[in-house]
Design a protein around this nucleic acid. Structure first.
Length: 518
DNA sequence: ATAGGGTTAG
């Protein structure tokens, strides 16, 4: 049934006039409107007001629709109306209503609803209890979530466990979440997904992939959510082979359309794993290229220093009629930064505000500061910070410090470092950057001073590390680690590579582009 | 008809 047919049908029902018939058909019609298109809810309200005494079922359906709409407050309003009109809420009403309270969030209303649930005797319904865990847990009230979970006793099911695991991962600690996860009597793919996503969120990608392996061993089919998190972990670990495996896995799934978010994550994974060719391949093979795919391409090219390509892609996207988002502009501006396209970057920043009507966020201002700073226009970057409508944050002062290090501006570097120290005295990166600058400008006294200060504050430099997978073996590199016998040989090859790159610095990755062009 | 998981930037 199309929306138009539905509206025609509605018109007929209104004219028909028979009350009982009206209620009967409107019920199905409202369900259709509510589920098929949340934006038809205004229309929905019109048809709703034509029912003299809506049943509990109809209230539930519309409350559910409002809960997943852009304005969940309407769900609460409708519930109030429901009570006024005397329609008795049932076991279906509360999960919807609690979800609305959780999303908003409206904790006062949530607790009030909890009281009503007890008064009306719905407190031992599993669906109601699970949504209560979600309400409290996802709003950082772990104690209360735990209490509902405890009181459930044998009533607990796999959803109760999974919800609490997810809440712990988000608001308590990943360790406590894992502890509960290990205690689960049984686990679904959603349980694994929640835990894997938790590891990804805190940057523990190796553990995420280990858990994914466990889910495979348990013969659980990964779903879209699992795949998204695993691709993200692959991207951060450079696990190209596993990424490729995931790619072929989703391609071979019969009857499935590849979700645009998965496609986006796939493109990103190939870029971050160093395979521009495969990223381009996925992109070109996409029938309907949405903003996610374009943005992943623009940022991927930026990541590889191919800012000109970022700009080209942006223009192509614009021509094809796809609207950029805030994220697209961060990607585009970072592309301009890394290719030294200062004027282009500034132009895009203006176009973003004027032509695309996107209000710049602190991230965009940060990009412009980075753009000017890396190009050596540090004074202009400082001027820009002065004119911003908001206070500069640590990312922006960090960009200034980086720029100062590149262009050996000790005076401004000390200014930026001062701001950073007052905000994040425990931030090691800032001491390291400042120390490197002092070293490069041969200010040995200052180097010692910073070293001393780091010691006093008690933050030690964590060694940098990276991972890469070659022929199915994962190699981990830790800065300064010479325990592996092949490290010396590797350093020699690295030196040769660096010399080659320097020789070809004007070639702008021509050899890669040769593979990229369609 | 009801409850659980997610990306693209820096």
């Amino acid at each position: 049934m199309s929306m138009q047919v539905a509206k025609q049908l509605h018109a007929h029902i209104i004219i028909a006039g028979h009350q009982l018939l009206k209620e009967h058909y409107l019920r199905d019609l409202i369900t259709f409107f509510a589920i098929s298109n949340p934006s038809s809810l205004n229309y929905d309200r019109i048809s709703f007001s034509n029912i003299i005494t809506p049943s509990t079922f109809i209230y539930n359906t519309v409350i559910r629709a409002y809960t997943s709409s852009s304005d969940p407050r309407q769900a609460l309003h409708l519930y109030n109306q429901m009570r006024r009109e005397g329609a008795p809420p049932d076991k279906y009403t509360f999960p919807f209503l609690l979800k609305a309270c959780s999303i908003l969030p409206h904790l006062f209303k949530g607790k009030e609803t909890h009281c009503q649930i007890i008064k009306l005797g719905f407190h031992s319904n599993v669906f109601v209890q699970n949504t209560l865990i979600q309400l409290y847990g996802c709003n950082a009230m772990i104690e209360l979530a735990h209490r509902v979970f405890q009181e459930m006793g044998f009533n607990r099911d796999i959803v109760s466990w999974t919800t609490l695991v997810n809440c712990l991962a988000n608001f308590s600690s990943i360790e406590s979440a894992r502890k509960l996860f290990d205690k689960m009597p049984s686990r679904s793919i959603v349980s694994y997904s929640a835990m894997i996503a938790g590891y990804v969120r805190v940057g523990r990608f190796k553990e995420a992939l280990e858990l994914f392996r466990d889910s495979q061993m348990a013969a659980l089919e990964p779903n879209d959510s699992t795949i998204m998190s695993v691709l993200c972990a692959c991207a951060n670990l450079g696990a190209l082979n596993l990424g490729r495996w995931i790619h072929s896995y989703i391609c071979n799934r019969k009857g499935w359309i590849i979700d645009t978010r998965i496609n986006t994550a796939l493109i990103d994974m190939y870029f971050k794993c160093g395979s521009i060719e495969n990223a381009v391949q996925v992109f070109l093979g996409t029938q309907e290229k949405l903003v996610g795919e374009w943005t992943a391409m623009i940022s991927g090219m930026a990541l590889h220093g191919l800012g000109h390509r970022s700009v080209e892609l942006f223009e192509e996207m614009h021509r094809s009629g796809v609207k950029p988002t805030v994220v697209t502009f961060v990607a585009l501006l970072s592309g301009c930064t890394h290719a030294g396209l200062v004027n282009e970057g500034l132009e895009y920043f203006e176009r973003m505000k004027g032509e695309f009507r996107i209000e710049p966020t602190i991230e965009h201002f940060g990009c412009v500061v980075d753009l000017l700073g890396r190009a050596g226009q540090i004074e202009r970057a400082l001027q820009f910070i002065q004119e911003m409508p908001m206070e500069a944050n640590v990312a922006i002062w960090g960009a200034i410090l980086t720029a100062c290090r590149v262009h050996k501006n000790v005076e401004v570097a000390e200014l930026a470092a001062g701001r950073l120290v007052s905000e994040q005295p425990w931030n090691r990166a800032l001491y390291v950057a400042l120390m490197s600058l002092y070293r490069e400008t041969e200010r040995w006294d200052s180097v010692e001073k910073v070293k001393q200060e780091m010691k006093e504050i008690g933050c030690r430099k964590t060694p940098g590390c990276s991972l890469v997978e070659v022929n199915g073996v994962c190699y981990e590199f830790v800065a300064g680690d010479k325990s592996q016998p092949w490290v010396l040989e590797l350093c020699f090859h690295l030196g040769t590579l660096v010399m080659e790159v320097e020789d070809n610095s004007n070639n702008d990755y021509k050899w890669i582009l040769a593979h990229c062009t369609d």
